[in-house]
Design a protein around this nucleic acid. Sequence first.
DNA 1: CGGGCATATGACCCGATAGGTATATTCTAC
DNA 2: GTAGAATATACCTATCGGGTCATATGCCCG
Lengths: 110, 110
Amino acid sequence: MESAFAIIAEPNRRTILSLLASSERSVGEIERRLRMPQTSVSKHLRVLREAGFVEARVDAQRRVYRLRPESLREVDAWLAPFRRFWTTHVDRLERHLDRMEQAARKGTKR
Amino acid sequence: MESAFAIIAEPNRRTILSLLASSERSVGEIERRLRMPQTSVSKHLRVLREAGFVEARVDAQRRVYRLRPESLREVDAWLAPFRRFWTTHVDRLERHLDRMEQAARKGTKR
DNA sequence: CGGGCATATGACCCGATAGGTATATTCTAC
DNA sequence: GTAGAATATACCTATCGGGTCATATGCCCG
């Protein structure tokens, strides 16, 4: 289970991620909202956790999972070169502004 | 091989797509540039073709493949809800932590 | 026409992985 | 401590997808 792409290839995992995008959830909540067996949820969460997509907070007997979005940036970054295919001149302006913003922040980053 | 996500889960297919992003190529060109066996290239191209990621133009004995980017928009669209995490959230948190770290360094005598 | 190039297809093997079932662990409440 | 909850893990199995090898198809050119 190397790449981020392999992780999100699984539909249930994508659903879990989407659910966590709105707010953090316990395993039981995920289980009920997505109507999938608990062991399956736990397994997918483990994969997501080990790949850095989510992290868990302990709350008594519960584990509350929340998103860790950095991993998805890899996917976003790979996608970047393709975006020019479906963007128009309007988005060109946007990219231009993005670059200017980045340049402006260069000195203060990290 | 249902979803676009499953398609791009394969590293060689991603490489092929990236290559085609710069310009169209014949099978032989892809084969040589990526140093992978021809049958393998053909198989991946078939998968990509049937999933709508690429299309082929016939040029004598060659097939010249070019990108059809619409399929990738599905991925891009799925990613959209997560983008707020790294366009606002993370940067703000990062800058916040940076300031705290700097302040902490100032205070300690190390 | 025949040979050789470019590409596609088919058959087989193999490793990875998701799902299911049963069980283990950890915590709470009494 | 015990019962029962919430969650994790082990194990098995069936499936699926990629690599490779052999072969088929189609096209060009002499």
